[in-house]
Design a protein around this nucleic acid. Structure first.
Lengths: 139, 139
DNA sequence: ATATAAATCTATAATCAATACAATATAGCA
DNA sequence: TGCTATATTGTATTGATTATAGATTTATAT
């Protein structure tokens, strides 16, 4: 899928973020690459197209997006944080063999107990680990 | 609750881990302190009692425990990994204001879709973020 | 017991994602 | 045009974790 810069800029403006060129490019990357990339991967890929891009800008931009709920941080394990364009109601499965992160549908609201009634829940994450079908059949 | 070293040693032997003195002390700490400590915190606390203790030993021991399913890694966010003595069917809620991590009961199995039928699931984690009642009432 | 091998542990150096910071560039506006 | 705030760059620093090599302890056999 190809996204128009104007549409991406509007998403940023909606969240009260000034649509600078670099911010548009980072968000475009997140929307086009639903591969749960790390900040490093985003930087390495965009650097080819934008030679002046700085790593600090990528980190700053991603932090802005997370605060604005445009993106989510995935911290299944490892030291590396991964980023995900926001979609509701899905969990992440990380294959311990090939490292791929898969999305799957889940609605955690169905199994929350009243224990959390007095808590303000802002973010819900479900992380599974194991072996994906492809790796499992290769054993 | 106080645990006998002999009982802790048996838990280790059950998981095919040799019950060295330091390993017993680390497991004892995890069982007695259900506060989701970091490796640093465990090290700092045990160091008082065991002056020769090395940080590397704490990391090695925790890694052993995680592999043996005696402990779980909690990676809600931050760079710091936290450790939790294994208990089934509970999620973690991190307060964005005070940083405390709370346990709550949840049974994710109830809301898993058939999407994951072909995946071997070895570990399930549920992480919530938000504001705890105490911090909320202080605003 | 003593020797030998295996495991555990220590201490320190290295790694590397993430952050902090100071300097520069750009955009918005009177 | 100049002024101010924001955005970006480039580099230095941080800090949790890992790697490593050597020392110590434990287990086993002779």
């Amino acid at each position: 899928m190809v996204y128009k810069h104007k549409d991406i800029a509007e998403k940023l403006i909606d969240r009260h973020i000034k649509p600078s060129f670099h911010r548009i490019k980072v968000l475009e990357y997140l929307m086009a690459n639903r591969t749960h990339p790390t900040a490093e991967q985003i930087f390495a890929c965009l650097k080819k197209e934008l030679p002046t891009l700085s790593k600090a800008t990528v980190y700053n931009t991603l932090k802005l997006f997370v605060e604005a709920k445009l993106a989510r941080e995935i911290t299944i394990e490892d030291k590396e944080i991964r980023y995900d364009y926001t979609i509701e109601n899905h969990g992440h499965f990380k294959c311990e063999s090939c490292g791929t992160i898969f999305d799957f549908k889940i609605n955690v609201d169905d199994c929350i107990t009243e224990e959390l009634d007095d808590f303000v829940i802002k973010d819900k994450n479900v992380y599974f680990k194991g072996i994906c079908p492809r790796c499992f059949s290769n054993t």
